[in-house]
Amino acid sequence: MTELRIAIVGFGKIARDQHVAAIAATPGATLSAIASRNASLPDLPHFATIEDLLEKGPPIDAVSLCTPPQVRRAQALAALAAGKHVMLEKPPGLSVGELDPLVAMAKDAKRTLFATWHSRFAPAVEPARQWLAARRIKSVHISWKEDVRVWHPGQGWIWEPGGLGVFDPGINALSILTRILPRPVFVTAADLSFPANRDAPIAANLALTDAGSLPIMAEFDFRQTGPQSWDIVAETDQGRMTLSGGGARMAVDGKVLAEEPEAEYRGLYRRFVELAATGESDVDLTPFRLVADAFMLGKRNVVEPFVE
Rank of each mutant, 00 (worst) to 15 (best):
E219L: 15
D231A: 15
P201D: 11
F194A: 01
L214K: 03
D231W: 02
A190W: 01
L206S: 09
S193M: 09
A204S: 08
G239D: 03
D237W: 13
D199T: 03
M241I: 07
P227S: 09
R223C: 00
T209P: 11
Q224R: 08
D210F: 11
T188V: 13
P184C: 10
A218D: 00
D191S: 15
A234D: 09
P195A: 05
T225L: 12
A204Y: 02
P195W: 05
D231K: 02
T236D: 14
P195R: 00
A200T: 15
G212Q: 10
I202H: 06
I202A: 11
S229R: 05
A189L: 09
A207L: 07
A203W: 01
S229Y: 11
G239M: 11
V185C: 12
T225D: 13
N197M: 08
D221W: 09
F186H: 13
Q228P: 01
A196W: 07
M217S: 15
I202C: 10
A203P: 05
A203S: 12
N205L: 05
L206C: 07
N197I: 06
T236M: 11
N197V: 07
D231C: 12
R223T: 01
T225E: 09
R198F: 05
T225M: 04
A211W: 03
I202P: 03
D221A: 13
A218I: 06
A204Q: 03
F222Q: 02
N205E: 15
F220C: 01
P201G: 11
Q224I: 02
S229N: 07
W230C: 06
D199A: 14
L208Q: 07
G212F: 03
A200W: 01
L192I: 10
V185T: 15
V185A: 14
D191F: 08
L192K: 01
P195L: 04
G212C: 07
P227C: 10
F222L: 06
D221G: 11
T188F: 06
D210N: 13
T225C: 03
Q224N: 08
G212Y: 04
T209E: 09
A207S: 15
A189D: 15
I202M: 08
P184N: 08
A234M: 10
T236A: 15
M217W: 12
G212N: 12
D210P: 12
S229H: 12
I216T: 01
T209A: 08
L208W: 04
P215C: 12
A196G: 04
F220L: 15
A190S: 10
A189S: 13
D221E: 04
L214M: 12
S229W: 07
L206G: 03
P195T: 03
D210Q: 14
V233R: 04
P184K: 02
E235W: 00
S213N: 15
E235N: 14
G226F: 05
A196D: 11
W230G: 01
P184F: 07
R240L: 14
A204R: 01
G212M: 06
S193W: 10
N197P: 04
L214D: 13
F220N: 00
I232E: 06
S213G: 10
G239W: 02
P227Y: 05
T225K: 06
R223H: 00
G226I: 05
N205M: 14
A196C: 10
A203V: 04
N205S: 11
M241T: 06
A190C: 12
D221K: 03
A203H: 01
P195V: 05
M241H: 02
P195S: 04
A203E: 02
F220K: 00
A218S: 04
I216C: 02
